[in-house]
Design a protein around this nucleic acid. Structure first.
Lengths: 213, 213
DNA sequence: GTCTATAATTAGATAGAC
DNA sequence: GTCTATCTAATTATAGAC
């Protein structure tokens, strides 16, 4: 099944980079034989593109409905978007890893991923943030900085979970750690939001580790 | 000169990962012949360790004096530490790139870098933050989260500067962008700090692009 | 210490039997 | 479509002349 191979490719590319990953490793992980990759995909590069397309399609499906309706509660939609993005980063740390790997040096892969996948999401988030700020809500940072905070800080502990585990014995795949991190990010971006009705009810549920001191 | 080779190694390892970097690329960048690397270093792995040691020595030299004196102005020392770390991340984006590359999968290199370099710095920052919070100052986040905010958000736009450039035409190597990003991070962590004497004088200097909206 | 040549291994991709 | 065998090129590392 091609889905299995794409998932294996995402894990390997995210862990070792494009050049550092061999198609044999990917095939072995998925239970394929290496030449099957070149039968089903034009090249290693085409396999990478197909895997990245799948990853961003998964992300899109978790946030598609957020900014489609009327902007009656933009702050609430923003907070919900952050919760979903943080949860997705925990489930799919490959997203941030591959974005980071490809964002550090000029390359054709960066051109491709920036224009095809990152730019549309970046512009939606930046513009939504600036509309929100225009209503007087939110931390006093601009849209570009808010995007960097959401993506950089929101994904960081999940993309680096093996390092986090070594330094703290925290398990970032724990659902309480995931929602706690989302709450911390929301508190930084939307300091007023914890006072809004129903905003942070989940923070006080039993069993949730409250990362807010 | 061995310094030149280690700098070349850092750039290549940071851009392509350990497995994705060939010793020939490194040698070519530094003007060496490939077999010289194996004469001066035991292996590709030993070269990587020497390069990472050099990188963290540079970081240590920029922050060595910060927490040594009496903790009379812990918030001020914290803000100054953030400014220096952000400036270092801009000058040496290889630090964050290599940390991220090695923090995503279990490996002997992660064991080595986590214990030798990351843990000591993590514990200093986490503990300093919790002492600061005990005085009632600072955002309501715990020490682990503060560390993730400083490292993740503080380094993100510099480690990903080629992507930032594509999306925004911002040049993150611009000194105003560097100090603006440090100010944004300080404002998130230490909301009270902008009111302290001399805290953010540089933000209002002519020519500085104020990223605070 | 430096350099050319090369050994031993592995990479992406293809040929061709089935 | 699958699988074995293999091609060409690139990899890390070493041998040995200078």
């Amino acid at each position: 099944m091609a889905e299995d191979l794409l998932d294996a490719a995402l894990l390997e590319f995210a862990a070792h980079g494009f050049e550092g990953t061999s198609t044999r490793q990917i095939a072995r992980r998925a239970g394929w034989h290496q030449p099957q990759i070149n039968y089903h995909f034009e090249s290693k590069e085409a396999l990478w593109q197909a895997a990245v397309d799948k990853l961003f399609a998964e992300l899109a499906s978790t946030t598609a409905d957020l900014f489609s309706g009327p902007p009656s509660d933009l702050a609430g939609a923003f907070a919900e978007g952050i919760r979903r993005f943080v949860a997705f980063s925990a489930r799919r740390p490959e997203l941030f890893r591959i974005m980071s790997l490809e964002s550090t040096a000029d390359s054709e892969r960066l051109d491709w991923i920036a224009e095809r996948h990152i730019r549309p999401r970046f512009e939606i988030i930046r513009d939504a943030w600036e509309r929100l700020r225009a209503t007087g809500v939110g931390a006093t940072i601009d849209g570009v900085t808010a995007y960097q905070l959401i993506v950089g800080f929101g994904s960081f502990p999940f993309a680096n979970s093996p390092a986090v585990r070594r330094l703290t014995s925290l398990d970032m795949s724990n659902p309480a750690a995931v929602s706690g991190h989302a709450d911390a990010l929301i508190a930084l971006l939307l300091p007023e939001h914890r006072d809004l009705p129903g905003a942070s009810a989940r923070r006080n549920e039993p069993g949730s580790t409250d990362r807010i001191a």
